[in-house]
């Protein structure tokens, strides 16, 4: 989604006019496009409509019988405390992951942007590595760390005299535990993006500030961060979307619990659609609402892009 705008701009720009008259419509093109569009049509375009249609039906758990009920799934959801709880969990989760994740990433990226004569490759490898880790593996690794007996977190906490919580079995801490895990898995990506943004900043700005006698922290505050706003904006959007879609870590660490403490919207869609009795209509209604939210956020990024172009 990051590249969307540019793509559109590119698509409309065509060959220079003097050349255009020589180019003809190429019917063969459809042959090259066919496999991609066949797959997209069946597995993306059609499901968008089908998803909405399902959300207007009550779907029998077995045998696939459907009954058209209009917006009943939606109205019931909006009146249900459980639904609002999943919304709340999703939002808390977002509030927990996004600022912390981006703040850490920027701090680390600033450190990494310092030119070093050696070893910088090793630091980068260590810091970037979560980029290739799956949500399932992140869940498994942190499940060990949170374990009250063999886990490391509470052991480390005890070294500084803190009695660690029973991470995965207490309502509040379970959400914190999932938050930490997702922040970790996203960190490599976020640092790479932040670092790329920092390295785009014109060196002369720093030189000028230095001449004016600005210290390191002043330079970070008055140059790095303001110049980085487009990158921060991009990171915020991407991380908000990722946080709204967190699933694997929750499935492995807490299974949505304890109680419903870590059941976010995606998790509820999964539970309604695939666990025990299947409520396909209700699952689709929730999926549709979540999707609209995510698409709306993507569009904000679309529009914000205009500003960033002036920036550079």
């Amino acid at each position: 989604m990051a590249q969307t705008m540019e793509g559109k701009a590119g698509a409309t720009s065509q060959a220079p006019p003097h050349r255009r008259h020589r180019r003809r419509y190429n019917r063969g093109a459809y042959f090259y496009l066919f496999p991609t569009f066949l797959i997209l049509a069946i597995f993306i375009y059609y499901p968008i409509i089908e998803s909405f249609r399902l959300s207007l039906n009550r779907v029998a758990p077995f045998g696939g019988k459907e009954l058209f009920v209009g917006f009943e799934n939606y109205t019931r959801l909006l009146q249900s405390a459980d639904f609002w709880n999943t919304v709340k969990v999703s939002l808390w989760f977002m509030v927990g992951t996004v600022p912390v994740g981006i703040g850490l990433a920027v701090a680390i990226a600033i450190l990494l942007s310092v030119p070093l004569k050696r070893l910088s490759g090793i630091y980068r490898t260590l810091i970037f590595v979560p980029v290739v880790i799956s949500s399932a593996i992140a869940g498994v690794l942190f499940r060990l760390l949170y374990n009250p007996v063999v886990g490391f977190f509470n052991h480390w906490l005890s070294l500084i005299g803190v009695d660690g919580p029973n991470w995965l079995n207490e309502q509040t801490w379970a959400l914190v535990a999932v938050t930490i895990t997702v922040v970790w898995r996203q960190l490599g990506f976020n640092v790479i993006i932040a670092l790329a943004g920092i390295q785009q900043i014109d060196d002369n700005l720093y030189e000028a500030a230095k001449v004016d006698g600005a210290g390191v922290f002043k330079r970070i505050w008055h140059i790095t961060l303001p110049m980085l706003t487009p990158t921060l904006f991009f990171l915020t959007i991407v991380n908000v979307i990722i946080s709204l879609q967190a699933f694997g870590e929750i499935n492995i660490l807490t299974d949505g619990g304890p109680g419903r403490a870590t059941t976010n919207l995606v998790y509820q869609v999964f539970v309604d659609g695939f666990v025990g009795t299947h409520f396909v209509g209700r699952a689709s209604a929730q999926a549709f609402m979540l999707a609209i939210l995510i698409i709306a956020i993507s569009f904000i990024q679309f529009r914000g892009l205009g500003k960033r172009v002036h920036y550079q």
């Binding site: 989604m1 969307t4 569009f37 993306i44 375009y45 499901p47 879609q245 698409i295």
Partner: peptide
Amino acid sequence: LFAMVIGSLIIPFELTFIPNFLL
């Protein structure tokens, strides 16, 4: 057609995976 390709990038999996599962 190109806009359709790009547009599909912002479709989150939540929207497609139930119908795909049924199919």
